[in-house]
């Protein structure tokens, strides 16, 4: 990539640029294949029968074999894990949204004693690896009788979403001009009214970005789900999937495992397709600059 530049100067701009553009394109396309192909392969494999898979793991499926999905969803209990995950993730995302929006709004736009200190507390959370507090959290949940409950899991997910969410939303709320909130107050809006009726809706882009990031990590989390839930019927999807691989290692029926992988990917693919513009815009909106 770096060696062809002097070449351009000597050989004249047009040919050099065309050649280097071509090379760059080849690299970009090659990398696209490296990213897309394994995912496509997983999807194809989920439609194959076991015999097909063993005959050739890399051929296209001969037909669409839906039994893998039925097996995964029912026999391997992926359906149960899926619904568990949906409930846990939905509550976490909404709860985080309310908590981090109110917090970030106050921190970004109000002057009061201790403001900087509270901001520092949240920001330092960004620099702490999640696994560090796992033993004390486990003990805390035990003593609060919240081990093996979704309540406990949801609280932990929410609290661990706060540093990043508050961080992004503070910079977001700072960009909203003062005139807007001032005008609302002159019109007789209370502080609560100003926030919920004006500031909250107007920050839609920031709130969606934050929620997508929280969705991504909570939907995909393995560590907390594995550690804080022990009852098989309460497990979240990533944990259930890993359990499935462990049992399949001895039965070698990969079909339902691939179906499980597709099931866990599908919501993320849909969300990405719907919101990818917003996601990039939110990241671009100066959020990581500070």
């Amino acid at each position: 990539m770096s060696t062809k530049k002097p070449f351009i100067k000597r050989e004249g701009k047009r040919i050099g640029t065309t050649v280097s553009d071509l090379l760059i394109r080849i690299v970009l396309i090659a990398y696209s294949v490296i990213v897309v192909y394994p995912v496509l392969w997983t999807i194809f494999s989920s439609f194959k029968t076991n015999q097909e898979f063993y005959k050739s793991a890399w051929a296209l499926p001969q037909g669409i074999f839906f039994d893998n999905y039925r097996n995964a969803w029912e026999t391997a209990k992926i359906g149960t894990y899926f619904l568990n995950s949906v409930i846990v993730v939905a509550i976490t995302v909404v709860l985080t949204l309310i908590l981090c929006a109110t917090t970030a709004y106050v921190l970004a736009r109000f002057k009061f004693w201790g403001n900087n200190f509270v901001q520092t507390l949240y920001m330092s959370g960004l620099y702490v690896p999640t696994i560090l507090g796992i033993v004390p959290i486990f003990l805390l949940l035990v003593s609060l009788r919240m081990l093996d409950t979704w309540r406990g899991l949801i609280i932990i997910y929410t609290v661990f979403s706060l540093p990043f969410s508050v961080f992004v939303l503070i910079s977001f709320f700072k960009t909203i001009p003062n005139e807007l909130s001032d005008a609302a107050r002159i019109d007789g809006c209370s502080e609560y009214g100003t926030f919920w009726r004006i500031m909250f809706p107007i920050s839609k882009t920031g709130l969606i970005t934050v929620s997508i990031f929280n969705y991504i990590w909570v939907w995909n989390d393995y560590l907390f789900g594995m550690t804080f839930i022990t009852n098989d019927l309460k497990r979240t999807l990533p944990v259930g999937l890993v359990r499935l691989t462990e049992t399949l290692q001895f039965k070698t029926e990969w079909g339902s495992l691939f179906a499980g992988l597709v099931i866990i990917m599908l919501p993320s693919i849909i969300i990405y397709a719907l919101f990818q513009k917003q996601l990039t815009k939110g990241l671009t909106a100066g959020s990581i600059k500070g």
Partner: peptide
């Protein structure tokens, strides 16, 4: 395309 793997669980990435 390049950002897409970030949407996946590390579980999925690991198994793939």
């Amino acid at each position: 395309v390049f950002f897409f793997p970030n949407m996946l669980s590390i579980i999925v990435v690991g198994l793939i």
